[in-house]
Amino acid sequence: MNQMLEIRWHGRAGQGVVTAGELLGEAAMETGKYFQAFPEYGAERMGAPIKAYTRISDKPIEIHSPILEPDMVIVVNPNLIGVVDLTEGLKPDGIIIINTSQTPQEIRKRLDFKGGQVWCVDASKIALEEIKRDIPSTMMLAVVSKATGIVDLDTIIHLTKERLGGKLRPEVVEANVRALKRAYEECVQG
């Protein structure tokens, strides 16, 4: 990687978006990279639209400001389409990763995004089936891995086990791992 990868996350407060952004950075750090992960702090209320940012680079990251022209936009909650300008500043050859039951073609049309790549994953469905709760944020990391290779799935699984292992029952941790693997397999690009 010659330059920095800049990612903007969109979700709703309480969905674990900030944690997912941090986890992505942490996964990159495991392979010797530098990272920054920070949310945009407003007046947080459960369910309010929120943004978070992750930067990943081979070199130390000096810039300390929100990302204006992201390389990637990750949308954790599809009901933000039409509510928030999700493609604002996104590079024309950028990547959109979205939690949705729709196809990349349908998402492209709804977002009026012609360039780059669109990756769709029904993360909420996977989460409900495996974890029994609609907590789709970390599943987006599996798709980041597939779309860019910037972090590998094994590292994400390893970190998930480490983070959840101390707090949750083994079968819940395993359900999270299964969900990650399914997100990796079931996501589609278009």
Partner: peptide, 10 residues
């Protein structure tokens, strides 16, 4: 505050 205080980095 927040910029580095709440920003996670290596």
């Amino acid at each position: 505050g927040f910029i580095t205080g709440h920003g996670v980095e290596r």
